[in-house]
């Protein structure tokens, strides 16, 4: 295993505590551990897959299957500022696609962002379409990193970009 990432004691402690939430089957901790890994290292590398598999007495394929099934897990870095724009109907009716195009242009991001994040050349921004974020009454909805923003007009988007940038 190539060791791109150093596992801190603190990280391992968090992982071990999380595993205790699943007294019946350690395997249940797969998703939580993937979240922890991605929060810590930015994306799930093969090292992550193998480390988690070993931790949970699984085969790497068991974890790899998950990384590629659940869209929130990435196998490469997203931007430092990560936009997730809701693509689904209510937001689309409210201008979700226009918001997506606007952000792409103003942050100079290439790529379509339909399947996984498209990252700007400098790695600062990334954008991705996601499906309904359960806030359809206040579309278009935009997530920037872990924060939620509703009724995001292009003007509001410009302000937000400034604020995060």
């Amino acid at each position: 295993m190539s060791c791109e990432f150093k596992i801190s004691q603190e990280f391992e402690k968090k992982v071990d505590e999380t595993i205790t939430h699943y007294p019946v089957s350690k395997r249940s901790a797969s998703l939580p551990l993937l979240h922890l890994w991605q929060e810590e290292f930015g994306y799930v590398s093969n090292q992550g897959v193998e480390w988690i598999a070993a931790k949970l007495d699984l085969q790497p394929i068991n974890v790899f299957e998950l990384v590629t099934f659940y869209p929130m897990f990435r196998d490469k870095l997203a931007g430092k500022i990560q936009f997730r724009v809701c693509r689904t109907l209510s937001c689309a009716l409210a201008g979700g696609y226009e918001l997506f195009d606007h952000l792409k242009k103003s942050c100079q991001i290439e790529g379509d962002g339909h399947h996984g994040p498209a990252v700007s050349a400098d790695g600062k921004y990334s954008i991705e379409f996601v499906e309904c974020l359960a806030s359809c009454g206040t579309g278009p909805v935009l997530m920037i990193n872990d924060d939620f923003h509703e009724n995001v007009s292009n003007d509001k988007a410009n302000e937000l970009v400034k604020k995060y940038g």
Binding site: Q59, I61, N62, F64, E65
Partner: peptide
């Protein structure tokens, strides 16, 4: 020998072995 699995999902579901296995 649990080596095979599906990656991706939906219509893109792909049978695979883990890289290196």
């Amino acid at each position: 020998d649990d080596v095979l699995g599906f990656t991706q999902r939906g219509s893109h579901t792909t049978l695979a072995v883990y890289p290196g296995k």
